[in-house]
């Protein structure tokens, strides 16, 4: 098991100039990222859609590396996105998935069949050409360079500690520093993307 923040710290050393969609790791990522205009900390626009969003972005900006930190709850809800990612096969997409076994933001109830799921096997079966399953920081640190050095799409299932939130939504700290649309606009400006 890994702490999300510790895993992201290691990733950050290897980020390069990738566009990062931190997903449910967003509250940690915004504290450490040194390139906020290449970040899309969207929070949770609608559960189950992060992989499809990242796919669309990766197809749109093929010269940029796109890194997504998805969650197992999102993947379970939107598992049908994986074959589409595999079919379109964007070589610039790196699909990490945080697996803490629970719905952490609703109090920690287990996701379906949490003890048995092998998400890397699911992704492989959907056609991802490279998949990994990593459950400790040491292995993550030793494999991250290899993961990011190969063409995507790559899927990486990461076992992380549940960091359960059990407060009403309105009572939770607001970690986002800008709106979703501002984050998109800042990325577009950073990458020189013109909108007609």
């Amino acid at each position: 098991m890994m702490k999300t923040a510790e895993m992201l710290e290691i990733f950050n050393r290897h980020r390069g100039d990738a566009v990062v969609i931190p997903g449910r790791g967003g509250r940690f990522w915004v504290e450490m990222s040194e390139q906020p205009n290449r970040d899309l900390p969207l929070g949770d626009p609608a559960m189950g859609g992060h992989a499809s969003f990242a796919l669309g972005l990766a197809l749109a900006i093929p010269d940029q590396r796109v890194v997504l930190f998805d969650s197992e709850g999102d993947v379970l809800m939107g598992m049908g996105a994986l074959p589409t990612v595999a079919e379109k096969a964007p070589s610039n997409l790196y699909h990490f998935m945080l697996d803490n076994g629970v719905y952490a933001t609703t109090g920690g109830q287990p996701v379906p069949n949490s003890e048995q799921m092998e998400y890397d096997v699911v992704a492989q079966g959907c056609g991802y050409p490279a998949t990994y399953a990593i459950d400790n920081l040491e292995d993550f640190a030793s494999q991250i360079e290899e993961i990011l050095s190969q063409p995507g799409p790559v899927f990486v299932a990461l076992k992380i500690d549940p960091e359960i939130i059990n407060e009403p939504i309105n009572a939770r700290p607001q970690w986002q520093r800008k709106s979703r649309n501002q984050a998109v606009a800042d990325m577009q400006a950073e990458l020189g993307i013109s909108i007609g």
């Binding site: 859609g49 669309g56 049908g80 990325m187």
Partner: peptide, 25 residues
């Protein structure tokens, strides 16, 4: 470019990503 989805909800998130990257889905 055709992007086939297996559930219509994915169409909206995919389109959001494409549009964020400057495309016109």
């Amino acid at each position: 470019d055709l992007v086939p989805v297996s559930r219509e909800g994915h169409a909206f998130s995919t389109a959001a990503g494409l549009a964020a990257g400057g495309q016109k889905p």
